[in-house]
C-alpha cells in the first residue's frame, strides 16, 4: 500500500500532488453522492450529461476571456441546466431534447476550443480530467463547492424527497417542486464545475450515478443510500488514484473503473445475501 507522504516538508502535506489529488477526488465523491442519488431516483442521467458537456463550452469561453475555468464552467453549466429544466417543464419531448442539447453542447464546445489560439490547452484534461494537476487553489474551490452542495442537499433533503416521489404530494404539503428542481439544478451545475478537473466532462455523470447505483443494492433508506454512495465514491477515488499511480493509467477513467467494479461487487453481494 502506498502512502504518499512528504516527510521532507512536514509543514504542508498539500505540497504533495498525490495528496492534493486524493483530497480532490474524495471532495468530488462527497459532493456527488447525495446529488447522484437524486439523479438516479429522478432518472436524470441524460440531464447530467447535457449539463456536463455544456461545461466544455464554458471552459473554452473562460480560456478565451481569460477568466477562471471554474467560473466559466459553472456559468455555462448552470445556463444549460436551467434551459433544460425550463424546457422540460413546458412539455417538450425530454429525451430527444436532452439528446440534442447534450451532444450539440459538446460539439460546440469542442469547436470553440479549436478556435482558441495562443492558449496552450490540453483538451484531454477537460474531457477526462487531470486530477494530478490539481493545485491548492483548485482544492479550495473543490471543497468549497462540495460543502455548498452537501449543505444544499441536507437543507432541502425532505422537500426534495417528497417532490421526487410525487409533485402533487409536494404541493399538498406546501412544497413547490419547481423550486426544489431549481435547487437540484444549481447543485448539479456546481458539481459539474468542481468535478471537471477531477474526472472530466465526459465522466462526471459516471461519478454521480455509479456510486449511487452501487449503494442502492444494500440500502434500506434514502439516507443510507446517500451515505453509501459517498463511501463508495470516496473508495473509488482513492482506489482509482492508486491504480493510476501504479499502472500509469489516466486518473479520471481509473476512478470510474474502480467505481464500476465496486458497483458490480455490491450488486452481486446483495443478490447472494437475498438468496
Amino acid at each position: 500500500m502506498i502512502m504518499p507522504m512528504t516527510p521532507a516538508d512536514p509543514t504542508d502535506m498539500f505540497d504533495d500532488f498525490l495528496i492534493r489529488a486524493l483530497f480532490a477526488g474524495v471532495g468530488v465523491a462527497l459532493a456527488a453522492a447525495p446529488l447522484g442519488c437524486f439523479v438516479v431516483w429522478r432518472r436524470m442521467a441524460y440531464f447530467g450529461d447535457a449539463t456536463a458537456h455544456a461545461a466544455i463550452l464554458g471552459v473554452a469561453l473562460s480560456l478565451a476571456l481569460g477568466v477562471s475555468v471554474f467560473a466559466g464552467a459553472l456559468a455555462i453549466a448552470l445556463a444549460m441546466a436551467l434551459t433544460v429544466s425550463n424546457l422540460s417543464e413546458k412539455g417538450f419531448g425530454v429525451d430527444t431534447l436532452l439528446g440534442v442539447l447534450a451532444h450539440s453542447a459538446l460539439a460546440f464546445g469542442l469547436v470553440a476550443v479549436s478556435f482558441l489560439q495562443g492558449v496552450r490547452l490540453d483538451l484531454m484534461s477537460y474531457l477526462f480530467g487531470d486530477i494530478l494537476a490539481v493545485s491548492k487553489g483548485d482544492l479550495i474551490v473543490i471543497w468549497a463547492g462540495a460543502a455548498l452542495v452537501v449543505t444544499l442537499m441536507a437543507w432541502r433533503w425532505q422537500a426534495l424527497l417528497t417532490s421526487t416521489l410525487n409533485r402533487d404530494l409536494a404541493y399538498a404539503n406546501g412544497i413547490n417542486p419547481q423550486r426544489e428542481q431549481q435547487i437540484m439544478t444549481l447543485a448539479l451545475a456546481i458539481v459539474v464545475a468542481v468535478a471537471i478537473k477531477v474526472v472530466g466532462a465526459l465522466l462526471i455523470v459516471a461519478m454521480l450515478i455509479i456510486p449511487a447505483a452501487g449503494a442502492r443494492a444494500m440500502a434500506r433508506s434514502p439516507e443510507i443510500m446517500a451515505v453509501g454512495a459517498a463511501a463508495l465514491g470516496a473508495l473509488a477515488a482513492v482506489g482509482g488514484l492508486m491504480a493510476s499511480y501504479h499502472l500509469d493509467t489516466p486518473a479520471g477513467p481509473s476512478i470510474v473503473c474502480v467505481a464500476a467494479g465496486l458497483f458490480v461487487v455490491m450488486t452481486l453481494a446483495a443478490r447472494l445475501r437475498s438468496k
Binding site: 429522478r42 432518472r43 417528497t162 416521489l165 410525487n166 404539503n173 433508506s221 443510500m225
Partner: peptide, 21 residues
Amino acid sequence: PQRLSIDATMPLTAARFLSLP
C-alpha cells in the same frame, strides 16, 4: 394521489414514507 409510482432505485420503507416531508 391517484397514482404514486416509486422508482425501484429508491429504497423507502413505509415508516420512512410517513416521515415525508
